[in-house]
């Protein structure tokens, strides 16, 4: 049985069908890429899966648990974490405070209001470990908003990893990055392989073919096809989509 399964997800924005009965399965430990032209509904799908947008219809199951009725925050508790296309960090806080906030969400109650957070050794250690893993130790005291783009994206990934997810949703982790930052991000994603399943949305085809075991192609809110790299490369409709010819809906 798949670790994660989305069945018949539907989302309408007025007359636009942004998700048209999407079925998607991600296996344990797999890196599964989701590709598709701009406006195909990739980000909408990530928002539906993570719970930031309510779906009009369909079901989401992670590890046998039906997540459909759960809110975004409850889904995190069940092992589903995400990153954002535009790095979503706390810009005026230091990198350390960013990491602490992410760690704190998973370790006990955030309603504690009398103990100084600085005195909680376990939180500090966990944030430090996260910084080391993502090569952010050098910038711990700098405000996240002034970091270079690549580092902000890495911090965004760090925030998601703090939840120790079983399924990680990466919404265009390489978007807007130079070759050096991209290479680092690919290495980082590679290092996560096996530890958790990853649903990777990405435009950088080299990265996709390098990382993903399976690839699903989303066009006009529908999954056109799913398969390994060779299957997708050889798929006639996929080729026409990426060459710019409209696929008959």
């Amino acid at each position: 049985m798949s670790l994660f399964r989305a069945q018949g997800l539907v989302k309408r924005f007025g007359g636009l069908l942004a998700a048209d009965h999407v079925d998607l399965a991600v296996e344990q430990g797999e890196i599964h890429a989701l590709i598709g032209p701009n406006g195909a509904g990739k980000s909408t799908l990530v928002n539906l899966i993570s719970g930031l947008l309510p779906a009009d219809a369909g079901r989401i199951v992670l590890d046998g648990v039906d997540l459909t009725p759960l809110s975004a925050q409850q889904r995190v508790r069940h092992g589903l974490a995400r990153c954002f296309q535009i790095a979503s960090v706390f810009r005026s806080d230091s990198v350390r405070d960013n990491l602490l906030l992410a760690v704190q969400a998973q370790a006990g109650s955030s309603f504690r209001c009398l103990r100084r957070r600085e005195s909680e050794r376990a939180l500090m250690d966990a944030a430090q470990a996260l910084a080391e893993r993502l090569a952010l130790t050098e910038v711990l005291d700098r405000p996240a908003g002034v970091l270079p783009h690549g580092m902000q994206k890495r911090l965004d990934v760090a925030l998601a990893l703090a939840a120790r997810p079983r399924l990680l949703l990466l919404d265009e982790p390489m978007a807007g990055m130079g070759p050096e930052d991209s290479r680092q991000m690919i290495e980082l994603i590679e290092s996560l392989r096996g530890e958790m399943a990853i649903l990777l949305i990405e435009h950088d085809m080299d990265a996709v073919f390098q990382l993903a075991g399976r690839i699903s192609v989303l066009v006009n809110g529908r999954v056109l096809t799913s398969g390994d790299a060779a299957h997708v490369r050889g798929h006639a409709e996929v080729q026409s989509v990426y060459l710019g010819t409209e696929v008959p809906a």
């Binding site: 005026s92 806080d93 955030s110 100084r116």
Partner: peptide, 19 residues
Amino acid sequence: SRFGYALRGIRDNETRMAA
């Protein structure tokens, strides 16, 4: 405290806090 930091996090980026 944890609560204070969480509140400021919500002020600055509520969507991220939910995620």
